[in-house]
C-alpha cells in the first residue's frame, strides 16, 4: 500500500500554460507568454499562481495584481474549479480513459495539458474567487480536512484538536511535497473504522456534474461497499442494461474496477485534501466494443 501511496503522491503532469489572446497587449504573440511546467497531480493549481503571474504580467493589458481583477484558469474555454486537485481536473476535464490513452501511446508521444490563464472584473459562475492568495488556499484546504474528518469520524474533533505545530506542519508537508509528514498527520485523522467515506465524483460529459454522495464503509449486511453499489444507486440508468456498464471510473490517472471496495480504494488513493476524487468516463458504443474486445 505504501508504494501505491508513494506513486499517487508523486504523480505529476506536464502543463502548458498560456494566456487568453484577448487579454494580451496588442502585438504580443501568444507563444511568447506560454509556460511549460510540471505540476504534481495532488495540489491546487493557484499554488503556482504567483510564479505564473510573475512570468506573464508584462505581456498583459491590465495589471493582474489589481485587487479589482479576478484570475482563473480555463481549459477549452471552460473555467476550471481550482478547489479540486490538478490531477482530478485533468482526468475529468479531458475525460481521460487510461486504457485508450495507453493504446494510442508511442515512445515519441507527449502527454501535455494546455490550459489558459484568464482574468476579468468578475469570476465565472461556480469558480471561487481567489482574493487572499496562499492564506485563502490554506484556509480552504484546512476546511476540506475538517469536512473529511467529520465524514469519517462523525465529528471534526481529531482535526480541531491538532496542535498548532502539527497543523502548520501538515500544510507545509503539502507545499514541500513531504509525504512522510503528510501521512503521519493524516493517519491521526483517518480512523480504522470510518462512519462514512469522503468521496467526490466528477463527471464532465455529457454535462459537468460534481457529486458528493453519502457513502458508508459497510452495507447493512456488513459487506464492504463497492463502487458498483454506489453508482448503481446514484446513476441507475447506466446500469439498466445487462452486460458491462458504459462507464469507467478513473482515479489518479488510472482505471479502478467497479468491483473495488471503496474504503480500501480510499486508503490507497485519497487526495491531499482528504477526499477520494474519482472521475466518471462515459464510453461511446465504439469504445465499449473496443474495451469489450480487450477484456
Amino acid at each position: 500500500m505504501d508504494e501505491i501511496r508513494n506513486l499517487v503522491w508523486n504523480g505529476a503532469i506536464n502543463v502548458k500554460l498560456t494566456v487568453k489572446s484577448t487579454l494580451l497587449i496588442a502585438g504580443v504573440k501568444k507563444e511568447r507568454c506560454s509556460l511549460n511546467i510540471r505540476i504534481p497531480r495532488d495540489i491546487y493549481l493557484p499554488m503556482y499562481l504567483p510564479f505564473m503571474k510573475n512570468q506573464v504580467k508584462d505581456y498583459l493589458k491590465a495589471d493582474i495584481d489589481d485587487r479589482e481583477l479576478f484570475v482563473w484558469f480555463e481549459y477549452e474555454n471552460v473555467p476550471l474549479y481550482w478547489n479540486y486537485p490538478v490531477g482530478v481536473l485533468f482526468d475529468s476535464m479531458t475525460s481521460l480513459i487510461p486504457s485508450g490513452r495507453k493504446r494510442g501511446d508511442t515512445s515519441s508521444s507527449i502527454n501535455m495539458w494546455t490550459i489558459e490563464l484568464a482574468y476579468g472584473p468578475q469570476a465565472p459562475s461556480g469558480v471561487l474567487p481567489i482574493v487572499k492568495g496562499q492564506e485563502q488556499i490554506q484556509g480552504y484546504w484546512m476546511h476540506q480536512w475538517k469536512q473529511v474528518c467529520f465524514i469519517l469520524n462523525g465529528s471534526a474533533k481529531q482535526m480541531m484538536s491538532l496542535a498548532m505545530y502539527d497543523s502548520k506542519k501538515f500544510w507545509e508537508s503539502v507545499i514541500k511535497r513531504d509525504r512522510k509528514s503528510f501521512e503521519f498527520i493524516a493517519t491521526k485523522i483517518i480512523p480504522a473504522k470510518p462512519r462514512h467515506i469522503p468521496v467526490v465524483i466528477h463527471q464532465s460529459l455529457p454535462e459537468m456534474q460534481i457529486m458528493q454522495p453519502v457513502i458508508s464503509a459497510f452495507q447493512a449486511d456488513q459487506h464492504e461497499e463497492t463502487f458498483m453499489d454506489v453508482l448503481t444507486h446514484l446513476l441507475p440508468v447506466l446500469f439498466e442494461k445487462k452486460g458491462r456498464a458504459p462507464i469507467k471510473i478513473v482515479c489518479s490517472g488510472i482505471e479502478i474496477p467497479l468491483e473495488a471496495h471503496i474504503y480500501e480504494t480510499y486508503l490507497r488513493f485519497f487526495s491531499f485534501d482528504g477526499f477520494l476524487h474519482i472521475s466518471l468516463c462515459l464510453l461511446t458504443a465504439n469504445e465499449v466494443a473496443i474495451e469489450g474486445l480487450e477484456n
Binding site: L7, V8, G11, A12, R101, S109, N111, G253, I254
Partner: peptide, 15 residues
C-alpha cells in the same frame, strides 16, 4: 500507476 507515470513523464525535461 507506473504505466501512467511513464506516459505522463515522457519529455518532462521540457517542462
Amino acid at each position: 500507476l507506473q504505466d501512467r507515470d511513464v506516459i505522463e513523464s515522457r519529455f518532462c525535461d521540457l517542462f
